[in-house]
């Protein structure tokens, strides 16, 4: 198992899409270092031949009937949009 020191906070912050301050990076690295130190215990468990559990009671092939259902009205769907115009959500320019 890799060492907690491998937590490259700059890289992980970037992957997480979180603009962290230098102070936050230092603090979270230290705090998560102690949490990861604890989590290292998992390496001690013999998991040879053990299947992973994603859900305690997995259900497979849950189908919905393929019939159109009423959805949210446009006004309801846009009600919480931070910025909108003409029934559309406004975002910063993404192409020059």
């Amino acid at each position: 198992m890799s060492h907690p020191a491998d937590l490259n906070i700059d890289r992980i912050a970037e992957l997480s899409r979180l603009a962290l301050t230098p102070e936050e990076k230092a603090r979270f690295s230290a705090q998560l270092g102690s949490v990861l130190g604890h989590i290292e215990q998992l390496a001690k468990v013999d998991v040879a031949g053990v299947e992973p559990t994603a859900h305690a009671f997995p259900l497979h092939n849950v189908w919905a009937i393929d019939v159109a259902q009423p959805g949210l009205a446009v006004a309801d769907a846009l009600r919480n949009a931070p910025s909108q115009r003409d029934n559309m959500i406004v975002v910063p320019k993404v192409v020059e």
């Binding site: 198992m1 890799s2 989590i39 998992l42 390496a43 468990v45 998991v47 053990v50 299947e51 992973p52 559990t53 994603a54």
Partner: peptide, 11 residues
């Protein structure tokens, strides 16, 4: 090392 192993420990 972490996620898959944790899911096995969950089992």
């Amino acid at each position: 090392a972490y996620y898959l192993r944790a899911q096995k420990v969950r089992t």
